[in-house]
Design a protein around this nucleic acid. Sequence first.
RNA 1: GGACCUGUGGUGCAGUCUGGAGUGCACGCCGCCCUGUCAAGGCGGAGGUCGCGGGUUCAAAUCCCGUCAGGUCCGCCA
Length: 575
Amino acid sequence: MRTQLCGEVGIGDVGAKVSLCGWVSRRREHGEHLAFIDLRDHSGIVQCVVSGSLDVRSEFVVRVEGTVRERPVGTVNENLSTGMVEIGDCVVEVLARSQVPPFVLDGRVEVDEPLRMRYRYLDLRTDRMQRNLRMRAKANAQIRQTMASLGFCEVETPLLWAPTPEGAREFVVPSRLSPQSFYALPQSPQLAKQMLMVGGIDRYYQIARCMRDEDLRSDRQFEFTQLDMEASFVGQEDVIGFVSEVINDATEALTGVTPDGFERITWAESIDRFGTDKPDLRFAMELVDLTGAFASTNVKAFSGETVKALCVEGGGQFSRSRLDSLVERAKALGAAGLAWFKVNPGEGGELELESPLARHLDSGEITAVFKETRCQAGDLILVVSGEYQRSCLVLGQIRIEIADTKVGDGRYRYVWVVDFPMFDGVDASGCPIPAHHPFTMANPADLELLKTEPRRVRSQAYDLVLNGWELGSGSVRIHRRDVQNTIFEILGITKEDAESRFGFLLDAFDYGAPPHAGFAFGIDRLVSIFAGEESIRDVVAFPKTQSGSDPMTGAPKAIGDAAMKELGLAARSVK
RNA sequence: GGACCUGUGGUGCAGUCUGGAGUGCACGCCGCCCUGUCAAGGCGGAGGUCGCGGGUUCAAAUCCCGUCAGGUCCGCCA
């Protein structure tokens, strides 16, 4: 039907008779003797010259036959990759007509997202979406290549799995053959891949779809894709090595840039220095501890457990209203308040602090603030006092918001965050909550603390962070039933409970489970960062809105009475 | 469950704070003209439930209340 793609036509084809297929991107008519068609397919655009008038409109699908020729002097289009040539003496065959599209596909104006989603098949024709989806395909291909080279075996796991209520809310699927019973769509193939390790697969991976029935965000869809992997007879360092290699290869393949290596930071250090467990290392602006400086202060606002500060370079120019909104933001994030100090040049080259609070500080405190923050004239110092971790997290969030870094600035700062705590807070009944998941192995050095001081126990869990985005996480797993039982006990999961929810896994552990560890990272997030997109919706072919609907198909929808009956279901009103 | 932002011809915006005739800009669309354009150009034209409902007012796109949709965030996402 066609001899080549539109974007492939070049100076080397001059004189050749070609046949091209595509969509009419634009047309320019010059009376009844001359007209131009910009013909588009996924590879690009080429200009076709017609001697006569046209009966085509935008987005008509056409097949064009003509002869490639060099463009006349002075009519070369530098903005087109095919701009040196054009297709002359064209005969145009209309393969399909099109209504006037609801929006223009040239990418010049930002179109409302619901409209793009309702007409996603049109949106996908744009350069942007073509580039994003093809970039994603390239990522998948590169990942498969690297995983295979590392000896990993691709295995598919079921989408219809048993409900294991724990962690994320599951999507459930009613069973027709067992009415009133349900499958669950996997939140991740976590348990399946551990079973594969018991099954001797040794090194498993899968580009796996995961489903979680939780509220959506710009970086979260109900269904998303992970590179899921697990390996036997390996530890944390092996897994970090595997993943670093996969990510390194993918980064090079997609961006042409080789990352400056993968840095390493402990969870505790990341919280202390950056106020988050997913630090963006593209900029510094680290948190400063002023607890010592205010150890014996008379200022009530600074008498909390911790005093943490952030020095914003050049922030002295912030307007009063911006400062007010920062204070509000800090309160919304859970701080008791936020104090600010503008650093002004004073007499004799000294610095001065400008703030409603400044006159309450004694000279020793002021000197300590200058020393600890290493501020300069024109800077802004933000201070939060209160419970240690909360204070860090509040300033960490403000740090990100002030820096306002963009995706797609060409920098890729990978960092491994290690030594996560085993537990994170306690639930209503006072039992520790696993920070990662209940199959995570504790750091051997901390095993004795499990029963005495569980909150001090570090786990063998690790996250990979890119530019402040958590790409994925993994851990060394528990492979012994006795240890797993101990963990369940600490978590307040009874024997019966564990048996009914994870019995199949525990049974498997009775038949020779190898030590194993693994990881999973989000491909949507990785590709969106490389593509310079703020939302993963732009690297997903058919995404859903924040309220979980699909404007194109109308999903979710009610099913008929007959279907309900067959499944043994009855609708009942919610609320 | 909560906070904030947005909703105006097919599309993207301005107009809303400070109420006064559906006012404006750009793109698209339709018709005519045009033999080298490429975001073609020129002339003319069509196209509106100002998301929806209620309230205040002589008068509401504009103010108030409610509601729906979309987005950003908090909660949530082991």
